[in-house]
Design a protein around this nucleic acid. Structure first.
Lengths: 242, 242
DNA sequence: GAGTGGTCTAGACCACTTG
DNA sequence: AAGTGGTCTAGACCACTCC
């Protein structure tokens, strides 16, 4: 898809790192070298390297070079989806999805959703409830809200497959960013039912509002994870700006 | 500190947004305009705008402009520290810090720490345990491990003030990035003591390994938060790279 | 001093949005 | 057609590291 040069360079180097061609603590070829091998300008190489740095593959050091900090084995420590990266990987895991409910409601029914999705009281929203099961046991219960006007064709079919593929491939919309919040809560009665088991009645709650690349709020998601099975992993860089 | 141009522009615009000069859904002046007002080249303006976008202040739209997506009121939804941003803000909150323990151990005593900090079995590490109290109640228990060689002068004094200031101002080291992992766990006996109360015996555990800008691992931190008081907030962008 | 990454410039061409 | 952001270039000067 992405035909620009710095992205191609990013792809090539990041898969070289994931694939083991460059290992942790290796130093990448210098920017000057990369300019030669890829036959592009230096700023283009630098865009690719900055992407690699932001995404936790390398650390650039003035006067030294770009050192690989990524260890492929870290990939497998992630057990459940909470980030976009993991959402994309959902299909590769053995979760089965069961749709519990898919209904239209007036937005005023859910005040928080109404505010988050920037809707009028009489606007219609989809409420979608799904169980994510692993080896027959429900690990995650997802509660989603979408603006009906933006997703006229939502169906149980689609909800059982990938909603994100439907959004991006069929509707031609582009997901851009999200705000997320994680808390720890006791299960409600309804949740105890949905998790159909009762040895531990606590959940990790991930609430998020997902926006498109035109900044429209698109999805309000409440994802309840069995607390004992939940793990959130994150890579972050410190911002030095003063 | 940071004397480069794009950072100054970033600072100016981000504080204009935080301060309410630009409100949510406002459109920033075009890149062309900003080039004129700041008297810099376009790529420099673009670096500042890209920073604003990465940090959740604006969304850039081809053909339209840069729209403000940041709402200052979101700032106050954060209740506890989990990110670098919040660590920097710790001093502005009314936590008091009590040092429970500060001792040297051979690294082999803590195998996970030894691996994470890349140490030999006989290398020495500091173990530091601190309670963070709010209105007399312990909300957070921090367990930290540092390489003694890198922090020869660590003391209870320093541990009660800001360790990060000591690291960056006194030792001249620069924090660059960290890997973080959040889980929810039942309290251990020791933790029940340290939290000196027992209405809810669950904690949110944030484990992180912090690295310097030369990629050396520096700190292994286990931060236990009273589960009922814990909230982690996050802004993230989806990467579109294929 | 040679090599590395960090910042900045002036200009070009393109794709998208809006009238 | 005019205005917007996205990509890319060729070159410059600087700060840092290592020998």
């Amino acid at each position: 898809m992405n035909l620009n040069k710095y992205n191609q360079i990013y792809q090539e180097i990041s898969s070289d790192i994931s694939g083991g061609k460059y290992k942790k603590d290796d130093v990448l070829p210098s920017e000057h070298r990369l300019v030669e091998t890829f036959d592009v300008s230096r700023e283009t190489v630098r865009k690719a390297l900055n992407l690699l740095q932001e995404n936790g593959f390398i650390q650039k050091m003035k006067g030294k070079g770009s050192v690989v900090i990524y260890n492929p084995s870290m990939d497998f420590t992630v057990s459940h989806l909470t980030s976009f990266k993991e959402i994309q990987q959902l299909k590769t895991k053995q979760y089965s999805t069961a749709v519990v409910e898919l209904k239209r409601y007036p937005a005023e029914q859910f005040p928080k959703v109404m505010v988050a999705l920037d809707l009028a009281p009489e606007d219609k929203v989809w409420q979608l409830i799904r169980q994510r099961k692993y080896e027959g046991k429900t690990h995650i219960v997802d509660m989603d809200y979408f603006t009906v006007d933006m997703m006229p064709g939502l169906s149980i079919q689609v909800a059982e497959d990938s909603i994100y593929e439907y959004i991006e491939k069929k509707l031609g919309l582009t997901i851009a960013y999200s705000h997320k919040e994680i808390t720890f809560d006791a299960m409600t009665e309804h949740e105890i039912e949905l998790f159909d088991h009762n040895d531990l009645s606590y959940v990790a709650t991930v609430r998020s509002v997902v926006h498109l690349n035109d900044a429209r709020p698109f999805q309000y998601n409440i994802s309840k994870h069995l607390a004992s099975e939940f793990k959130f992993v994150d890579f972050s860089r410190r911002f030095h700006g003063d």
